[in-house]
Computed example of a mutant assay.
Amino acid sequence: MDAPLRLVIFDVDGTLVDSQAVIVACMKAAFSEVGLAAPERADILSGVGLSLHMLMPLLAPSASAAAHEALSTAYKSAFMAHREETGVAASSPLYPGALECLNALHNVPDVLLGVATGKSKRGLDKLLEAFDLAPKFVTQQVADFHPSKPHPAMILTALQETGVDAQHAVMVGDTSFDMDMAASAGVRSVGVTWGYHGRDRLGGATRMVDNFQALPDVLNEMWENKQ
C-alpha cells in the first residue's frame, strides 16, 4: 500500500531564518519615526509571528489606532530599506542545518513542504528567492491573505491546496502562536527551541527539537503514531 501524502508546514522568522537583529532594529526605527518610546527587545521578539496589525497594539497599548497604522508603515519601510542595504541573506540568515533539513525532506517522494508565516507575500518572495527555496514549498501562506496567527486559516488553506489530511500534516515553528494555530487546525506540531519563544512557552507542541538534525527522525516517529 502506498504511503499517504504528508505535509510539513514551516514558520519562517525564528524557525528557518534568524531575523531577530533586523526585526529589533527596524522596530526601534519605526517607533523613533512615530515619536514613541521603543519597546524592550524581549517584548519585540515575544510578538514575532503575529501580523503587524495585531503586534503594534501589544507593543504600544496606549497609542491610537492611527499611531499603530503609522508604526506598521514605518516598520515595513525600515525593513525594506535595511534589506536593500544589506541583502536578504545577510539580514535574515538561515539557521544552521536548515537548508540540509529542507533538502532531505524535499527529497522524500511522499513529503510536501509548505510555509505559514506572518510575513507579507513580498517579504517571503524576497527571502525564498535569496536562498533559492521557492521550488521546495508547494504551498505558501502569508499575512496578506489570512487572519493573524494563531487563527488556523493558513494551515487549513495549506491542507486544502495540497489535499493532505490533517492527521498527516505537521506544523513546525518557534512560537506559541504556531503551536496554537496547529491545535486549532487539528494538526500536530513541533516546537523548535532556537527561536523567539523559549521552551517554557512551547508547552502546546506535540514534540520539541533542539536542532534541525533531529527534525526528520521526529517527524517519522510522529507519522508512525509514536508521540
Results as ranks from 00 to 15, higher is better:
Pro135Ser: 12
Ala98Gly: 03
Val190Cys: 09
Val22Glu: 11
Ala143Trp: 09
Asp144Glu: 03
Gly118Ala: 02
Ala65Gln: 13
Leu5Val: 07
Thr139Ala: 11
Asp165Tyr: 03
Ala37Phe: 01
Ala38Pro: 06
Leu202Arg: 13
Gly49Pro: 08
Gly35Leu: 11
Pro135Asn: 12
Gly97Thr: 11
Asn103Ile: 06
Leu128Ala: 08
Asp2Trp: 02
Gln160Gly: 06
Val8Cys: 06
Leu102Asp: 06
Val115Trp: 01
Gly198Thr: 14
Ser72Gln: 14
Met179Gly: 10
Gly87Gln: 10
Met222Ile: 14
Lys28Ser: 09
Val22Cys: 09
Asn225Cys: 06
Pro61Phe: 02
Gly186Ser: 10
Leu112Phe: 00
Ile9Gln: 01
Leu7Cys: 03
Glu224Ile: 00
Ala169Asn: 08
Val8Ala: 09
Ala74Ile: 03
His168Gln: 13
Phe212Pro: 04
Thr73Tyr: 08
Met54Leu: 13
Lys28Val: 01
Asp43Gly: 10
Ala66Pro: 02
Leu113Trp: 08
Asp217Val: 03
Ala3Phe: 02
Leu128Phe: 09
Leu156Tyr: 01
Asn103Met: 12
Ala205Gln: 12
Val164Leu: 03
Ala21His: 14
Tyr75Gln: 01
Ile44Glu: 03
Ser176Phe: 11
Ala74Thr: 04
Leu112Ser: 10
Pro61Thr: 02
His151Ala: 15
Ala3Asp: 10
Trp194Arg: 05
Val190Gln: 06
Lys76Val: 12
Trp223Ile: 07
Pro4Ala: 12
Leu124Asn: 02
Ala65Arg: 14
Lys119Met: 05
Thr73Cys: 09
Ala104Ser: 14
Leu105Asn: 08
Thr86Met: 15
Phe10Glu: 05
Glu100Tyr: 03
Ala104Tyr: 09
Leu45Gln: 10
Arg41Phe: 00
Val115Gly: 01
Lys136Arg: 15
Leu102Tyr: 10
Gln140Gly: 04
Val164Lys: 01
Gly163His: 00
Val187Asn: 08
Ala104His: 13
Ile9Gly: 02
Val34Cys: 11
Ala25Arg: 14
Lys119His: 08
Asp13Met: 11
Ala166Thr: 06
Ala182His: 05
Ser189Tyr: 08
His197Trp: 07
Gly97Met: 08
